[in-house]
Design a protein around this nucleic acid. Structure first.
Length: 321
DNA sequence: CCAACTTCCCGCCACA
DNA sequence: CATGTGGCGGGAAGTT
């Protein structure tokens, strides 16, 4: 993969903008470095260049206008503080970008802008949970998923609150450059490496994120032995809990059942092995704890959408790079 | 990819 | 009474 031209990310600030949201794409994408340079070129634009009204006393000075959207590979709309009517210039710029095939991403209430532009009709999407009610009333044609972190509907991806926006950006990095790169970025910005993606790319995670994670030690322990047989009973023993309680806590803390969490971690391990090594698929399956290559295949297809070999062909750093 | 087999998940409920 | 735990069962999901 030769990245001569960094992928162009353009953030559209729609006033009154949520200040923190504006920083998210920058936070993630600007820290994504490839051996041969930055992976992304991040810019912020707005309909009327100049000082942009934001909440919370942050003043943003944006010099780029909407024409920046025209040649963006990815267009991100961040949160809008007040939802009522939206600038038609923004809406048409977004429609044009969509028609062109650009990737469209929203953080928080940015989803309202896409919905207003009619770009989400018939598609699954999510937004900040506080606005979920209003969203579904205004846009009944959109399949709102209020209980997920983010929704990857292909060309358009929407995320819930602030933190979910980070998860979504990491998801994009992972899509573009693979798990190892995404994990490295996550580590740098000290974010939990990856909040898991489920089937069909929906991340099903109840929003109130766990209180404190008493299972952290057990999860670390499990991560250390992904490649050996790990049963629920063994994990319960390690945590000194009954299987029932372990299962319950796991769901509270990670949003996933123990096995689902394990499978997620194993697929992550497999991805890294596929990317970074030339190990035969059988070996990758074994060392990631997924057992046989059938098993690996099944889970890769289900969660990543690619077979192991196809994944390696797309992301391997040992062939050609 | 199927089929037989195993393990898990989670509502329900009793109990601390 | 409120809150957290853990056994049980059978349908779901994973494995071989």
């Amino acid at each position: 993969m030769t990245a001569e031209q960094p992928h162009r990310v353009v953030v559209v600030a729609v006033p009154p903008a949520i200040g923190f949201d504006l920083a998210i794409p920058d936070l993630v994408f600007r820290r994504t470095k490839l051996p041969d340079g930055p992976a992304y070129d991040v810019r912020v634009c707005t309909a009327d260049p100049g000082p942009v009204q934001t909440d919370g006393g942050f003043d943003a000075l944006v010099t780029l206008g909407l024409d920046a959207v025209a040649d963006a590979d990815t267009v991100i709309v961040t949160g809008v503080k007040k939802i009522d009517t939206f600038d038609p210039r923004v809406l048409s710029a977004l429609r044009a970008a969509a028609a062109r095939g650009a990737r469209l991403v929203s953080i928080c209430t940015g989803a309202f802008v896409f919905a207003e532009a009619g770009l989400l009709d018939g598609l699954p999407a999510t937004t900040h949970w506080l606005q979920a009610e209003e969203f579904s009333q205004r846009y009944p044609a959109v399949q709102l998923r209020p209980d997920v972190l983010f929704v990857d509907a292909g060309q358009i991806l929407t995320s819930a609150g602030l933190a979910a926006g980070i998860d979504l950006c990491l998801h994009l990095v992972r899509q573009d450059h693979g798990a190892a790169v995404a994990n490295r970025v996550a580590r740098r910005i000290v974010v939990s490496p990856v909040r898991p993606g489920g089937q069909a790319q929906f991340i099903a995670r109840p929003l109130p994120p766990a209180r404190d994670d008493s299972l952290a030690a057990t999860r670390a322990w499990a991560l250390d032995r992904l490649d050996v047989d790990l049963t629920l009973a063994e994990m319960a023993r390690h945590a000194s809990l009954s299987v029932r309680t372990l299962t319950r806590r796991f769901r509270e803390e990670t949003g996933l059942s123990p096995l689902q969490w394990l499978l997620h971690q194993r697929v992550e391990r497999a991805r890294e092995l596929l990317e970074a090594t030339a190990l035969p698929v059988d070996q990758v399956a074994r060392r990631s704890g997924l057992g046989t290559r059938d098993s690996l295949r099944q889970h890769m297809r289900q969660r990543v959408g690619l077979t192991p070999t196809a994944y390696r062909a797309a992301f391997s750093r040992t062939n050609g790079a």
